[in-house]
Simulated assay, not measured.
Amino acid sequence: MNFTTSPTHNVLLGAVTLLCCALAPQAQATDASPAADETTVTLGLGMGVTPRYMGSDRYRPLVLPMLSIQHGAWFADTTRGVGLQFQSDSGFSASAAINYDLGRKEKNSTTSPGGDELRGMGDINGATVANFTLSQQLLDWLSVNGEAELRMAGEHRGNRYRFGLEGILMHTDRDTLSLAIDAHAGDSRYNQTFFGVTQAQSQRSIYSKYTADAGIYAYSAALNWQHTFDAHWSTLASLTLTQYADQASDSPLVRREGSGLGLFAINYTF
């Protein structure tokens, strides 16, 4: 399996896909598409715990101020970035966005991934990325989806991919309980950046040399519960379990093959 692409190819692919998504709502708009003149703003605050970095056996508190603005097909989101989304009444949806990846620090950080045990590995600088998602509803309660995150500028850290299934376990007027099961993959540069150890890094750190190839590096299961109080207030509780495998499981940087992320958020929409 080979996921390798050049930075120039990523920029061109990003531009073409953004253009296609921009044209799609005009050419294929359906009743399921957001109204062109409707604007929705959501403010929120999320709190939880997350591993210090991918593969870490230590955790750090997570505080996430959240802002989401939706105007027709356009959105600006502190989680997803800035972009376009499209949804048809046949159950197909797609989005394209520009976002920013924080990278990884070689010391403990309260605002980005990193840990003191990574000293000598060097920082992984941030990178501007293009995110593309596709989803197709198979049944009333089941959909298949995929995501590609392509590096556009900044750190040459490669590209990552995700594909999986999402099922609605329960849905009422006030509550929605869903389960998403995904496989996470990276090209050779991405896996080497986050899980590999070069000879130079090995000499500066406590880790032995390790070379990661392209392929799946983890599987995850995410349980999400959204509760709506009224037209404005809602909460979200999320638990994500990740199991590192294949290209990551033998990496000396992965101190624990299984990890969890817990998050609780309260949101106000107006």
Results as ranks from 00 to 15, higher is better:
Ala29Arg: 12
Leu43Tyr: 09
Met47His: 03
Thr235Leu: 03
Gln85Tyr: 07
Thr176Trp: 15
Glu117Ile: 15
Asp182Met: 04
Trp141Gln: 08
Leu13Arg: 09
Pro252Thr: 07
Asn10Leu: 14
Phe75Ser: 07
Leu64Ala: 13
Arg189Val: 11
Leu142Glu: 12
Thr133Trp: 03
Tyr217Gln: 04
Pro25Ser: 13
Met47Thr: 12
Gln247Leu: 00
Gly115Cys: 06
Leu134Trp: 01
Gly146Met: 03
Met152Glu: 05
Ala212Met: 04
Asp31His: 12
Ser109Arg: 13
Tyr210Gln: 00
Asp250Ala: 07
Trp225Ser: 14
Ala94Trp: 15
Ala222Ser: 08
Cys20Leu: 14
His171Thr: 04
Leu43Glu: 09
Gly44Tyr: 11
Ser238Asn: 09
Gly215Tyr: 04
Arg189Ile: 06
Val197Glu: 02
Gly258Asp: 13
Phe195Tyr: 07
Ala214Ile: 05
Ser188Ala: 12
Thr110Asn: 02
Gln203His: 15
Asp140Ser: 14
Thr78Ser: 12
Asn131Gln: 15
Phe3His: 00
Met152Thr: 09
Phe195Arg: 02
Met121Glu: 02
Ala97Met: 09
Arg80Lys: 14
Asp246Trp: 06
Leu84Asn: 00
Gln192Asp: 06
Met170Ala: 14
Lys209Ala: 10
Phe264His: 00
Phe229Asp: 03
Met121Leu: 06
Val63Met: 11
Thr242Ser: 01
Glu117Trp: 09
Gly262Asn: 06
Ser143Trp: 13
Asp31Asn: 13
Gly14Asn: 12
Asp57Tyr: 15
Gly164Val: 08
Tyr207Glu: 13
Leu263Arg: 11
Asn99Gly: 12
Ala35Gly: 07
Met66Trp: 02
Tyr219Leu: 14
Ala248Cys: 07
Thr4Trp: 03
Leu19Cys: 14
Ala200Ile: 10
Ala222Tyr: 02
Ser143Phe: 10
Thr8Glu: 08
Ser259Arg: 11
Ser90Asp: 10
Val129Glu: 09
His9Glu: 08
Asn125Ile: 07
Lys107Gly: 10
Arg174Gly: 05
Leu12Met: 12
Phe132Ser: 07
Gln203Lys: 10
Tyr100Trp: 06
Leu138Trp: 06
Gly158Glu: 01
Arg52Ile: 05
Gly81Ser: 03
Ala29Gln: 13
Ser205Val: 10
Asp250Thr: 11
Ala73Pro: 13
Met47Gln: 05
Thr8Gln: 11
Thr39Ala: 05
Thr4Arg: 02
His171Gln: 11
Thr176Pro: 05
Ile98Cys: 05
Gly103Arg: 05
Gly120Cys: 15
Ser135Ala: 12
Ile124Ala: 01
Val82Trp: 03
Trp233Leu: 04
Gln199Leu: 12
Met54Gln: 10
Leu138Phe: 01
Phe92Val: 03
Thr4Pro: 01
Thr42Phe: 00
Tyr210Leu: 00
Ser238Met: 08
Arg204Lys: 15
Leu18Tyr: 04
Gln137Asp: 09
Ser143Tyr: 15
Asp250Ile: 06
Lys105Thr: 00
Asp57Ser: 15
Gly14Leu: 10
Thr110Val: 02
Gly196Tyr: 04
Pro252Leu: 03
Glu257Val: 11
Val16Asn: 09
Phe194Met: 12
Leu177Arg: 04
Ser249Gln: 01
Asn159His: 08
